[in-house]
Amino acid sequence: QIFVKTLTGKTITLEVEPSDTIENVKAKIQDKEGIPPDQQRLIFAGKQLEDGRTLSDYNIQKESTLHLVL
């Protein structure tokens, strides 16, 4: 699982696999929060994550925290 922290300070927990794409993660966030993926920007280690890449591409491991910017 990974954590996604929103600007409001809320933390969302997501069940993911390293092979999941960023697009996939955004879809999971939409399921939980109702935020359309095209409004979501995910930041990890100061980098904006691209939809077509996977979590493992960015070396995002379990218990990692991503930041969600709208």
Rank of each mutant, 00 (worst) to 15 (best):
E17S: 14
Q48F: 11
Q48K: 08
L14S: 00
P37I: 15
F44Q: 02
E15C: 15
Q40S: 04
Q1E: 08
K5E: 09
E33L: 13
P37A: 15
I43V: 12
D38C: 15
L42N: 00
L7K: 11
G34K: 06
L55G: 00
G52A: 12
T21P: 05
E33A: 10
D51V: 06
G34P: 03
Y58S: 03
I60T: 02
K32D: 03
T11I: 13
V69A: 09
G46D: 07
A45R: 11
T11S: 06
G46W: 05
G52W: 12
I22T: 05
K28S: 04
G9A: 04
E33N: 07
T13A: 10
T21G: 03
P18S: 10
N24Y: 10
E63F: 15
D57G: 04
T65S: 05
T8M: 12
T65K: 05
I43W: 13
K62D: 11
D51P: 07
K62Y: 11
D31N: 11
L66H: 02
H67T: 14
L66N: 01
L7F: 13
P36F: 06
E23R: 14
E23P: 03
V25Q: 00
A45H: 11
K28C: 05
T11V: 15
E50A: 08
F3I: 06
G9S: 04
I22R: 00
Y58H: 04
Q30K: 10
V25G: 00
P18L: 15
I60A: 02
L14R: 00
I22S: 02
E15S: 15
R41F: 11
G34L: 05
Q48H: 12
K5P: 01
T6C: 11
Q61W: 08
N24D: 13
Y58E: 03
I43C: 13
E17W: 12
V4E: 01
K10E: 09
E33R: 04
A27K: 15
K62R: 11
P18W: 13
T11N: 06
P18D: 09
E23L: 11
D38Y: 12
L70V: 12
L68G: 01
K62W: 09
N24C: 15
Q30A: 12
T8G: 11
D38S: 12
T8V: 07
E50I: 07
N59A: 08
T8F: 11
D20W: 09
K62H: 13
Q1R: 15
L68T: 01
E23Y: 15
V25R: 00
Q30W: 13
K10Y: 13
E50N: 07
I2Y: 05
T6V: 11
L14A: 02
K28W: 05
E63L: 13
D57W: 12
I29F: 02
S56P: 03
F44R: 02
I29E: 00
T8N: 14
S64Y: 08
N59E: 08
E50G: 04
N59D: 13
I60G: 01
E15I: 14
I43F: 14
K62M: 12
T21W: 05
D57T: 05
K62L: 11
N59P: 03
G52D: 13
R53F: 15
Q1F: 15
G34M: 05
Q1D: 05
P36T: 06
R41T: 14
Q61Y: 11
I12K: 01
K47C: 10
I43N: 06
L42C: 01
L66I: 13
D20K: 02
E33K: 04
T6E: 04
K26M: 06
T13H: 07
Q40L: 07
I2E: 00
D57I: 03
T54C: 08
L66Y: 02
P18M: 14
H67N: 08
Q40P: 02
L42Q: 00
I35T: 08
E15V: 15
P37V: 14
T54R: 09
T65L: 10
I12F: 10
P36I: 06
I43P: 00
V25T: 03
G9T: 03
F3Q: 05
K32H: 10
T8L: 10
K10A: 08
Q1P: 10
D31G: 10
E50D: 09
T13C: 11
P36N: 07
K32V: 11
I2D: 01
G34F: 04
Q61N: 10
P36E: 08
T8I: 08
L55Q: 00
L7H: 14
Q61M: 11
K47R: 11
K10P: 05
S64E: 10
T65A: 04
T65Y: 08
A27H: 14
K26I: 03
E17V: 15
T11L: 13
K26E: 00
T11A: 05
D20I: 05
K26D: 00
L70T: 13
K26L: 04
L66R: 01
R53Y: 14
N24I: 15
D57E: 09
D31A: 13
Q61A: 13
T13Q: 08
L42D: 00
P36L: 07
Y58F: 04
L68W: 02
L68D: 00
I2P: 01
G46N: 07
K47Q: 14
I60N: 01
T54Q: 07
E50C: 11
P18N: 07
D57V: 04
L49Q: 00
K28L: 09
F3M: 06
L55T: 02
Y58V: 02
I60S: 01
R41K: 13
K32N: 05
D57Y: 14
L7S: 15
G34E: 04
E17P: 03
T11F: 09
K32S: 10
L49K: 00
T21K: 08
V16Q: 02
K28E: 03
I35M: 05
L49R: 00
F3K: 06
V69F: 13
F44T: 02
T54N: 05
T65P: 03
Q48A: 09
D31M: 14
Q40H: 04
T54I: 06
T8P: 05
D51E: 09
V4G: 00
E50R: 07
R53V: 06
T6Y: 11
L66W: 02
T13M: 11
P36M: 07
Q48P: 12
A45I: 06
A45P: 01
Q39M: 12
I60E: 01
T65W: 07
E63R: 07
Q61K: 10
E63H: 15
P18H: 07
T65R: 04
E50Y: 07
L7A: 13
L70K: 07
L14F: 04
L49M: 06
K62S: 15
D20F: 07
T13W: 07
L14Y: 02
S19A: 08
L55H: 01
Q61P: 14
I35L: 06
V4Y: 02
D31F: 14
V4Q: 01
K10H: 12
V69H: 12
R41Y: 14
I43G: 03
L42K: 00
I43H: 11
T6K: 05
E17C: 15
I22G: 02
R41L: 13
Q1A: 09
A45C: 15
Q30G: 07
A45S: 10
D38L: 10
A45D: 14
V69I: 12
I22L: 05
E33G: 04
Q1M: 14
T21V: 04
K26C: 02
I35R: 03
R41S: 15
L55S: 01
K5N: 06
K10D: 07
Q1G: 05
Q40M: 14
Q48S: 11
K26Q: 02
F3C: 05
Q1Y: 15
S56Y: 10
T8W: 11
S64N: 08
G9C: 07
P37W: 12
E23M: 14
Q1T: 14
T21Y: 08
V4A: 03
G34S: 05
P37K: 14
E63W: 14
Q40G: 03
S19T: 13
L68Y: 02
Q61R: 10
E63Q: 11
D20C: 08
E23S: 13
V16D: 00
T11D: 04
D51F: 04
T21Q: 04
D57C: 04
D20V: 04
V16K: 01
A27T: 10
T21D: 03
T21A: 04
I43T: 11
N59Q: 11
Q39E: 11
G52K: 11
H67V: 13
D20R: 02
N59M: 08
R41P: 01
D51Y: 05
L14V: 09
I22V: 11
S64C: 10
L49Y: 01
L7M: 15
A27I: 15
K10I: 11
P37Y: 14
S56H: 11
S19P: 03
E17A: 12
K32I: 14
E33W: 10
V4N: 01
P18R: 06
I22K: 00
A27E: 10
K47I: 15
L55C: 06
T8H: 12
V25H: 00
I60V: 08
T65H: 12
Q40K: 02
G52N: 12
I2V: 07
T21S: 08
E23K: 11
Q1H: 14
Q40V: 09
S56W: 10
L66D: 01
N59W: 04
L49I: 04
V4T: 01
Q40A: 05
L55W: 03
V16W: 13
Q1C: 12
Y58Q: 04
P18F: 15
V16I: 09
A27N: 12
F3W: 06
V25M: 05
D20Q: 04
A45V: 06
L70D: 10
T8A: 11
E23N: 08
L42T: 00
P18Q: 11
S56G: 11
F3N: 05
L55Y: 01
K5A: 08
Q30D: 06
G52V: 07
D31V: 12
I2G: 01
S19Q: 10
L55N: 00
E63T: 07
I35Q: 03
V25F: 03
V25E: 00
Q61G: 14
K26Y: 03
I22C: 03
F3R: 06
I2Q: 01
L49N: 00
K28A: 07
N24T: 14
D20S: 07
L70M: 09
R41Q: 14
Q39F: 08
L14N: 00
K32Y: 07
